[in-house]
């Protein structure tokens, strides 16, 4: 039997080691590449479904009759493009939804979806993804704790700006036993989300055309907050 590659003396050679290592690296990368190609459409589809579910959670169905996943506007948020989903009823934007991110415990990003109505009131906030410690920081998820619901109905003036913090910092929002950094970051991110709405209100509500005047208050809109 000519199984030369099984003979130990060949396996001692440097060229065999190089070929083996290279071959395994090539094979495994090829396998991962193929798997990525095969799973990409499915994963994208699952993420789109997740996004729709999240949007439905932060913007109640009574606020829109359009397909808000497709009605988007991209706004420049301090150098980063941010996709905003607009909920319209009868053609008028009733609410918007977008994602804000916050550095969590250990500097891994948390992504939070917020829904804001025309008046700047928070319709809801949900944590979409995070890497917080299971059992400690993960109480920001709705299925672990209803803490995240404490943001619903808040706006930039409710509570007062200096009260937008966890209780430990003199604010109104609860922290968790053993995890202050995570809720503190979420509170900060949600507040930043509301500030983003206040800064770009007219554009988000489709009252000005996106362009060079983006971010300027529209004649009829402006800072009604």
């Amino acid at each position: 039997m000519n199984r030369w590659f099984l003979k130990p003396e060949y396996r001692q050679r440097l060229s065999y080691h190089v070929a083996l290592l290279g071959g395994v690296a090539l094979l495994t990368s090829a396998a991962i590449g193929v798997a990525d190609h095969l799973t990409r459409p499915d994963i994208a589809q699952r993420q789109l479904e997740d996004l729709q579910i999240t949007l439905q959670q932060v913007v109640p169905a009574t606020y829109y009759d359009n397909d808000l996943v497709r009605d988007t506007v991209t706004v420049d948020d301090g150098g980063r493009p941010l996709v905003v989903y607009r909920a319209r009823r009868g053609g008028q934007v009733q609410a918007v939804c977008y994602q804000v991110s916050a550095p969590g415990y250990g500097n891994t990003a948390m992504v939070i979806a917020v829904g804001v109505d025309r008046a700047g009131t928070l319709l809801g906030a949900r944590v979409i993804s995070h890497n917080e410690t299971p059992g400690l920081g993960d109480k920001i998820e709705l299925n672990k704790s209803d803490w995240i619901l404490s943001f619903t109905g808040r706006s930039l003036n409710d509570p007062q700006p200096d009260q937008w913090a966890v209780k430990k910092d003199g604010g109104v929002f609860d922290q968790f036993t053993g995890a202050t950094i995570t809720p503190r970051a979420v509170v900060k991110a949600v507040k930043a989300g509301l500030e983003f709405f206040a800064a770009h209100r007219a554009l988000l509500l489709d009252e000005v055309a996106p362009g060079p005047i983006a971010g300027q208050p529209a004649p009829d809109g402006g800072n009604r907050l």
Partner: peptide, 8 residues
Amino acid sequence: MAINAWLH
């Protein structure tokens, strides 16, 4: 990848 795509 497989779990993400097919057992979401």
